[in-house]
């Protein structure tokens, strides 16, 4: 059972709010202080990705963020975009990043995924159990 749920219209301006709430709940849950920058970045990346997908597919539904601090700190960011959209999640190497033909959106997607994978040890990206969409699930240990 999530202790805090946040749903927001898929607009870039709200991603900061999601980061702030996510870090506040993490701190309250007892996530180590030195991990909070990574929590902030990872929640931001997951929400940015969800907002981008909603805009790309013209999905007006809200993006959902669920934060659960029972045991460890689990954050689920749920989008409602077609599942095939998530398949393009691959990290890029330095040559690909510098390649002139790679457009900025693709580069941002690749870099965003590299950050998620690099900062979250326990990361899962999977289809939502019901309906259309993808869930990015991130877990951090708590000190309690």
């Amino acid at each position: 059972m999530a202790t805090v749920k946040l749903s927001f219209s898929p607009a870039p301006v709200h991603v900061r709010t999601a980061r702030l709430v996510g870090v506040a709940v993490a701190r309250r849950a007892g996530v180590r202080e030195d991990l909070l920058d990574e929590v902030r970045l990872a929640i931001g990346e997951a929400c940015t990705r969800a907002v981008a997908l909603h805009r790309q597919y013209h999905v007006p539904d809200p993006v959902l963020v669920e934060m659960d601090d029972t045991g460890s700190y689990t954050v689920r960011v749920i989008d409602r975009a077609p599942i095939e959209a998530s398949i393009g999640l691959t990290a890029l190497n330095a040559d690909q990043l510098a390649n002139e033909s790679l457009d900025e959106d693709d580069l941002t997607t690749g870099v965003g995924f590299a950050l998620l994978a690099g900062f979250v040890e326990d990361l899962q990206v999977r289809p939502v159990p019901e309906g259309v969409g993808t869930e990015v699930r991130m877990v951090w240990p708590t000190g309690r």
Partner: peptide, 20 residues
């Protein structure tokens, strides 16, 4: 005090533009 993938994308965009 905060930089995400979108910001990194903008920086790479500027680098490539200047190179050209």
């Amino acid at each position: 005090d905060f930089l995400d993938s979108t910001g990194l994308g903008v920086l790479v965009g500027a680098l490539k533009r200047l190179r050209t």
